[in-house]
């Protein structure tokens, strides 16, 4: 991967102040970088903080949530200190985001053409006519054949897969450097999911974007991501290139996730499970946040937690089991 990162997140903390006593540490001290042309997956279950990470990058965190620490830079420019006006210029232009449920992300009372051309008028200062033409071209780029008709239709007239194609068209309209996709195919059927994921991979190549793919599906990760970060309890617990993470899985949580997946290629009588449930973000166990569910928990895990440590040149794990440079005891 080349030179400077597109996105650099350093010690980001996003907390939600629920009431006087309870603070939900939804994202707690995470750092990572994404380089040009890379697809990086952020994996975790609900409540792991993966979506909040994305929303923090977009600076779409609302009260009672607040980014309380750290820095985020896009192409070496710090964005956490920008005013909301300046941030508007970055959002949609340098970074674009695709959401899980395209029906709620699109405005039901405006036509598709209207919604795409709005971005072009705002960011690219195109005239109405030019924006409308560009909108049609964009729809064709994302594989919508009846683009001339679709621009005049409303979101409810389209299927889920088509709506997600429209979302992708909107996202790429200003040639962003980074595309964040938050569970982009979770609401779709598998055959449509495959179409959309392939389209995103194509668009990434064509427009030289970096892609941050947020998902709970390790199958999707395995087929599309170059690198994976596994999140649990607002922290990254393991990070490695995809094949390494799936083959040499180190963190007990990542292992548990993999074992609990029903496999198509092999028969198992019982699935592996992770006992218990994800604790709420205002009530993490002291020490390691996974200690309440970990099958290998040790006394010191309940007292304190370790950092994300390098165990190999590109493999990082946050776990006491691998304290001494990755040698299992």
């Amino acid at each position: 991967m080349s030179n400077d990162p597109v996105l650099d997140v350093e010690q980001l903390k996003t907390y939600f102040y629920l009431d006087e006593e309870r603070v939900a540490k939804a994202v707690d001290d995470i750092s990572f970088s994404i380089y040009p042309g890379e697809t990086v997956a952020l994996v975790g279950e609900s409540g792991s903080g993966k979506s909040i990470t994305a929303l923090s990058i977009m600076q779409l965190i609302n009260k009672p949530g607040k980014i309380v620490g750290g820095s985020i830079s896009i192409a070496s420019e710090e964005i956490l200190t920008l005013s909301s006006k300046q941030m508007e210029k970055i959002r949609g232009n340098d970074i674009a985001m695709i959401f899980q449920e395209p029906m709620t992300a699109l405005n039901p009372v405006f036509t598709i053409g209207n919604q795409i051309s709005e971005i072009l008028r705002k960011h690219k200062k195109l005239s109405n006519k030019a924006a409308q033409e560009k909108a049609i071209n964009l729809l064709k780029t994302v594989g919508i054949s009846r683009a001339e008709e679709i621009v005049n239709e409303y979101p409810h007239q389209l299927s889920g897969g088509m709506r997600q194609r429209v979302m992708i068209a909107m996202a790429i309209s200003c040639d962003p450097k980074l595309l964040i996709a938050d569970e982009p195919t979770t609401a779709l059927d598998v055959t449509i999911q495959a179409q959309i994921l392939d389209l995103m991979a194509d668009m990434k190549e064509k427009f030289h974007m970096a892609l941050l793919l947020i998902t709970h599906d390790l199958g999707v990760v395995s087929e599309y991501a170059d690198r994976v970060m596994v999140m649990y309890g607002g922290q990254i617990v393991e990070e490695a290139p995809t094949s390494k993470l799936l083959e040499l899985t180190k963190h007990p949580y990542s292992q548990g996730l993999l074992e609990s997946l029903p496999k198509l290629e092999e028969d198992v009588d019982r699935l592996g499970t992770i006992k218990g449930t994800v604790p709420p973000a205002y009530d993490f166990p002291s020490g390691c946040r996974f200690s309440s569910r970990c099958p290998f928990v040790m006394e010191k895990c309940k007292q304190s937690s370790t950092d994300l440590k390098k165990i190999d040149q590109d493999h990082f794990v946050r776990c006491y089991l691998y304290e001494n440079g990755g040698s299992e005891e």
Binding site: V190, T191, Q193, A194, L197, D217, L218, G219, V220, V221, S222, E223, Y224, S243, L246, E247, L258, L261, K263, L264, E265
Partner: peptide, 10 residues
């Protein structure tokens, strides 16, 4: 349908 499912192919 079967080949649309992304699988963990080690």
């Amino acid at each position: 349908l079967l080949s649309s499912i992304p699988v963990i192919d080690k």
